[in-house]
Design a protein around this nucleic acid. Sequence first.
DNA 1: TAGATTGTTAATCGATTAACAATC
DNA 2: TAGATTGTTAATCGATTAACAATC
Lengths: 219, 219
Amino acid sequence: MEEKEISQAVIGRLPRYFRYLGELKDEGVERISSQELSELMKVTASQIRQDFNNFGGFGQQGYGYNVEYLYQEIGRILGLDRTHRFIIIGAGNLGQALGGYLNFERRGFIFSGMFDKNPDLVGKEVRGIRVQPMEEMEQFIRDNDVDIAVLTIPKTSAVEVAERLVHIGIRAIWNFAHVDLNVPEGIQVESVHLSDSLMKLSYNINRYLEENEQQCEKK
Amino acid sequence: MEEKEISQAVIGRLPRYFRYLGELKDEGVERISSQELSELMKVTASQIRQDFNNFGGFGQQGYGYNVEYLYQEIGRILGLDRTHRFIIIGAGNLGQALGGYLNFERRGFIFSGMFDKNPDLVGKEVRGIRVQPMEEMEQFIRDNDVDIAVLTIPKTSAVEVAERLVHIGIRAIWNFAHVDLNVPEGIQVESVHLSDSLMKLSYNINRYLEENEQQCEKK
DNA sequence: TAGATTGTTAATCGATTAACAATC
DNA sequence: TAGATTGTTAATCGATTAACAATC
């Protein structure tokens, strides 16, 4: 039974489909064609159909796709029908921001614990969760069936904490530290490198400026 | 004078090169070959050479690349030799986290102003910057030569605020709201969709679980 | 000069788009 | 049945990798 591997390019587009379908659903739209969806999302209808057909036929010839059904199926593919318990390591502003973000809860991501090595932050509460010292992390993960650890700590400590997480058998790491984490196969890492994102923006600003300067010179 | 357009795939890799080269530089490494760098970064040497050669020849046959020089050149390509003034719109935890992030300053991104529509937050200070009411945004952008607006507000207000920013002639938007912003050509938008990132993680966790379940069944 | 390693061209691979037969 | 639109195969495009001549 050979399962074809789905490319990460496709996976990366699923959340966006999910978002648009959720909005359509909320607006009471019942059916949509790949053509209509393509105009809304500014991608090709071909790509939409190809993407969905990686997972089986969700549509019906002559009709299109049922919004509610497709929404649910994509949610299921993304694993949003299961619950995932997560802890946040690093109780600074970013950690607090993520802990307070209620939309995660709606998608089955349960904020279960928070840790910090700074004694001043220990004991503080974020959305009903008390910040604990780092020493209690391993025990807490074991006792509370934690799937995901969110790293909102500086890169200097991130590597070391990641090693502890791997050792205790964490399933996934959502990494906000500005460093690449090397973990064994089977442990999932998703990194959000904010400054990389900002640098890309900077490049595109300046590229645009330069193009315009050239055009002015031509005149 | 036909300028070849650099693909966003390449641009997206530049910040990572920049980061590794910065670390090598700090460690006092003087020269590095594409082969060595490829082992460090876990990409192919071929890709590294191709990427760099989009911008001209930075290396020397038989020698490799000078770390310091390459680091500077990539920084320049990314526009990090210029300063960019940014304001943060939305003074919640995420906005405060970004405002407090000192590393941006080191790269030439100057935190200049902060705005919120909530009167309770107006007047509060984040790293010496006073939160102002939304009404003052346009005047502030005009007076302070602001390049980038960072949106850390809910999606409901993000679309409306983005329109105001476009109207006043902002150059770039760094968007953390969970919505796609449609802006005219020439205004740069870089979106960080945190829940999309979390959903990708969720997919990969569950994919791995399912693969293992299948393997168990086989036995 | 000999060895190393780039810059660059050519080959391969994968992802996107186009086309259309299948079918609701 | 006729029209619409999917699912899927084939064509195209772009990105990655391999190979090697140029050259430091």
